[in-house]
Amino acid sequence: MKVAVTGLNNVDSPGPGVPVIRGIKDSERFSGKIVGLIYDALEPGAFMPDVADSSYLIPYPSGGLDPFFERLAYINSIEKIDVIIPTLDAELYAFTKLSPKLAEIGIKTFLPSAEQITIRGKDKLFSFCEENGITAPKNILASSIHELYAMPSELKFPVAIKGIFYDAYIANNFEEAAAYFGKISSKWGLPIIVQEFVRGEEYNVVALGDGTGNTTGAVAMKKLYITDKGKGWAGVTIDEPQLIDISKKIIEKLEWKGGAEFEFIKDGNTGKFYLLEINPRFPAWVYLAVGAGQNLPYAALQLALGEEVENFENYEIGKIFIRYSWDLITDIKKFEEITVKGVVVNE
């Protein structure tokens, strides 16, 4: 069995590849090899011991789907890959689009559809939530400054001004909102999302949907340590059934297929949970779920292989992850292998 995984960029804003691989390898039922697929020669996961057996450089899908597929097909001709698990937002559309072609060359995937990925987008999420009775911060899309000034009265300052893909600022008045509108739109384009600002604590859920509306597993977490980039470098599993119930409802309504992360904020005054975002892949903290008793990465592999997977009903509360950085020493030969040949093998 060979499983290829992307997102081995275990850096300050880490990709989920390494924890996904750890989960798969932790399963007693897994015997096989891991192939790392990397976009940068220095993605640490390619060099870490007991992570990937071999890793290959691949081009960015934004450079065209044909060369991207050709490279995957070439790697497959050497490695005979059974399943690819992509873990990064930016590549998901490409893998979803290519999944029929990948199936033709014997590679299975287990991914959300292009439509599912679109619905969970920042610009569509509020409508989805409204239609399905899921509480989310009110928002409007503004494609011009005029639309921003015409924002409906139910949206009161402060508001969050967000880019369609990235970036978010809190604006306390129209002047600030207009300044952030300009800043974000010049970088990320239009429209801009003007969102009700909910003050409170953030909570996260990692989950796996089997594509029929059923939730295979879900684990809720509270970040305990947040870096200046907003990344959780420590967190604890929590017992909040509401978070799990809302997550299951979303998976049911979307018939979500694959891993996902749900980001919530709990209103400090009302105690109500607001859905902020759906990330269409496992988060980098997914190994906490494995440690708490739900090996969701391995379950995702089983689903990709068409195996039946029993739902996880429980997980251990009070399990903590503490992320750390580590200087790995290796030889320049390894770097030469990956830069010259595009592949590095870990003995």
């Binding site: 604890v236 929590i238 017992d239 509360i317």
Partner: peptide
């Protein structure tokens, strides 16, 4: 003290 519902 550990509040399992909030992680505090």
């Amino acid at each position: 003290l550990f509040l399992p519902a909030t992680g505090e």
